[in-house]
Structures are given as C-alpha cells and as structure tokens.
Amino acid sequence: MNHNLFISMMKDLSVLYIEDDPKVQEYIAEFLGRYTPNLYLAGTAEEGLRLYEEREPDIILLDINLPGKSGIDFARELRMHDQDTRIIISTAYTDKEFLLTAVELGLTRYLVKPITGTELIDAFSKAASEYIERRETVLVNLGEGYYYDRERKILLFQDIEVPLRRKEMELLEFFIENRGRTLSYDVLQYEVWNTTALSKDAIRSQIRNIRKKSHPGIIQNISAIGYRLYEEETK
C-alpha cells in the first residue's frame, strides 16, 4: 500500500494494543505511534477491557498469551456484542486449531512473532480498510456530522443518538431507502402514512421537525416536485 495513503487511513483511527511483554510492547507501540495519535496500551486482558469500554477503539492488536484471560478469550467475549472493531492477534506459534478460531472470530489477521514493521503495516492496512468499509456500509452519511445507523436504526450526531419520534424516524428511513429519488407529496402520503387524507402541511411539519433536530439540508426541497434526501458530493 502507498505509504501516504496508509498514514491518511490511520490518522483518524484509534488503536488498543494489549501485550504483557514490556519490551515487545515498547517496540511496537513506538512504531504504531508514528501513524496514529490515538494509541492506548494495556498489559492484561482485564486492563484492555477497561480501556476498550472507555475509549471504544477502532482496531485492537492483542497477544494471544496474556496472563489470566487469553487473547482468544478476550476476542471471543468481544465478538459476542461487537462485530465492528477490527482485531489483529499476535502469537508465537500457529496451528490449524488456532487458524479455525481466527476465522470463527472474524479476526483481520494473526501475526507470528517476531513481527516486522512491514507485517504491521500490511495487517493494519487491511484492518483499516475493513473498518472503513464496514462503517460506510452500516452508517449512512446525512451531512453535517449526522449519520443513520442501519443496524441500530438510530440517528447519530458525532456518535451521540438524536431522539426522533416514531413517525419522524419512519419518514427519515423512507427517504434513506429511496436515496437518489425525488419523493412527491403523493408518494409520501401513500408509502409512509398509507393515506390520501394527509395534508401537505402535515408532511411539511414532520420534515421541519427532522431538520430542526439535525440540519436544514438533510432533506432538500425540489421546487414543484417534492423532497430529496441529502447526498454527498462526488469528486
């Protein structure tokens, strides 16, 4: 991968590194610190879990042989409720059983010690690509820092939920499902409210409410036709 592209990908991502060998941790942390300002270090799975809950990292690098709870156990617990965070495991050995576990847990990569800088860059490039791709699939960009989370079905602003009333959410979701289309009043009446009796003022009121809770351009007026959802500018 192009080195400048790797720097660009990593600069906004956070990394949690769990390793109980201080010398190994110091060496790899110094290397990773060149690419991400958001690097958190732990020496045990328990300490790593605390940092994970506090910092919500995007990528985790952890050793398989940790004191107490192993790296595999840590990853297995994490995957019970978190499929997004990318996980890279470092190990002093490899075997078929471990490889099957790595696939089962959706690990991005396993690295066999001693780890080189090239191997770290390759592994983190893949993890960053996976994270960005998954985020773009799950989160719909609605502009001005607002996103719709498809999995949790909530509106977010800078990762904080924006509460919407039921009909406001149904209306926003309908616009998202029909992104790229201009939706007329008639379509909104039939598809969202299942009625022809709803007035245009009632629809305008719901759209105003969504705009007030987010930003004015989230749903755009198309003169004499209807409305259209915010779309990212293409370069």
Rank of each mutant, 00 (worst) to 15 (best):
P216D: 08
I203P: 05
F74M: 02
H81D: 10
R150C: 04
N4F: 11
R109N: 12
I225L: 13
I207R: 04
I207D: 02
A127N: 03
D58A: 10
K167D: 13
I18T: 00
W193R: 09
L107W: 03
T101Y: 02
M1D: 08
H215F: 05
E177P: 04
G117Q: 13
K213F: 06
Y110V: 13
L142M: 01
T91H: 00
T234H: 13
D149R: 04
Y185S: 06
M80V: 11
S70C: 07
S8N: 14
D73Q: 15
T91S: 15
E233S: 12
V103M: 08
D63L: 08
E47H: 08
R166D: 14
A197I: 10
E231I: 05
I154F: 08
A197W: 09
Y110I: 14
G226W: 00
L51Q: 02
L16F: 07
L41G: 07
V24S: 11
K113R: 15
Y190H: 12
T91Y: 05
I219G: 00
L66C: 01
T137A: 12
I203E: 07
F31M: 03
I210W: 01
L100N: 13
M169D: 10
E104P: 00
T101F: 05
F157T: 09
D58M: 01
Q158R: 15
D122H: 15
L105A: 07
I176H: 09
F175Q: 04
M80E: 15
I88A: 06
I210P: 01
I7L: 11
N221G: 03
Y17R: 01
L164S: 01
Y93M: 11
T44K: 04
Q25G: 12
K213S: 07
D186I: 10
L13I: 08
P216R: 08
L107Y: 07
L105T: 06
E151M: 10
R208P: 03
A42D: 03
E119Q: 14
S90H: 05
D159Y: 12
